[in-house]
Amino acid sequence: MDLVAKFDAKGKTGAPYHVEVYQTQQDEADEAAQAFSRSYKLADGRALDPLTNEKFRIVQTGEKIYRV
Score class of each variant (00 low, 15 high):
M1T: 14
M1F: 11
M1P: 11
D2C: 10
L3C: 12
L3T: 13
L3H: 09
A5Q: 08
A5P: 01
K6E: 06
K6F: 06
D8G: 10
A9M: 02
A9R: 08
A9C: 02
K10L: 10
G11C: 06
G11V: 10
G11I: 09
G11Q: 05
K12D: 14
K12M: 13
T13I: 08
G14K: 03
G14C: 03
A15E: 12
A15H: 13
A15L: 14
A15N: 12
A15C: 10
Y17C: 00
Y17Q: 05
Y17S: 01
H18L: 12
H18S: 13
H18E: 15
V19D: 00
V19Y: 09
V21H: 07
V21D: 00
V21I: 12
Y22D: 02
Y22P: 01
Q23V: 11
Q23A: 15
Q23M: 12
Q23I: 10
T24R: 09
T24I: 11
T24W: 06
T24M: 08
T24K: 11
T24A: 13
Q25P: 06
D27W: 08
D27K: 14
D27I: 07
D27V: 07
D27F: 09
E28G: 09
E28P: 07
E28F: 04
E28A: 07
E28I: 00
E31N: 11
E31P: 13
A32N: 05
A33T: 01
A33M: 13
Q34R: 12
Q34N: 09
Q34F: 00
Q34P: 00
Q34C: 06
Q34T: 10
A35L: 15
F36V: 15
F36E: 00
S37G: 09
S37Q: 11
R38F: 15
S39F: 08
S39D: 07
S39C: 04
S39A: 08
Y40P: 02
Y40V: 01
Y40D: 01
Y40N: 02
K41Q: 09
K41S: 04
L42N: 03
L42M: 03
A43N: 14
D44V: 05
G45Q: 04
G45M: 04
G45P: 03
R46C: 01
R46M: 02
R46G: 00
R46T: 02
R46V: 00
R46N: 05
A47S: 14
A47Q: 14
A47D: 15
A47G: 06
L48R: 01
L48C: 02
D49A: 10
D49Q: 14
D49I: 13
D49E: 15
D49W: 11
L51E: 06
T52W: 05
T52R: 06
N53M: 12
N53Q: 14
E54F: 12
E54C: 11
E54P: 03
E54N: 14
K55W: 08
F56E: 03
R57H: 07
R57V: 05
I58M: 07
I58E: 07
I58T: 02
V59T: 13
V59P: 03
V59S: 13
Q60S: 15
Q60W: 05
Q60Y: 06
Q60A: 15
T61H: 01
T61A: 04
G62W: 04
E63Y: 08
E63Q: 10
E63W: 10
K64T: 09
K64Y: 15
K64L: 15
K64R: 11
K64N: 13
I65P: 04
I65Y: 15
I65A: 03
I65Q: 11
R67F: 04
R67P: 00
R67H: 03
V68G: 05
V68K: 05
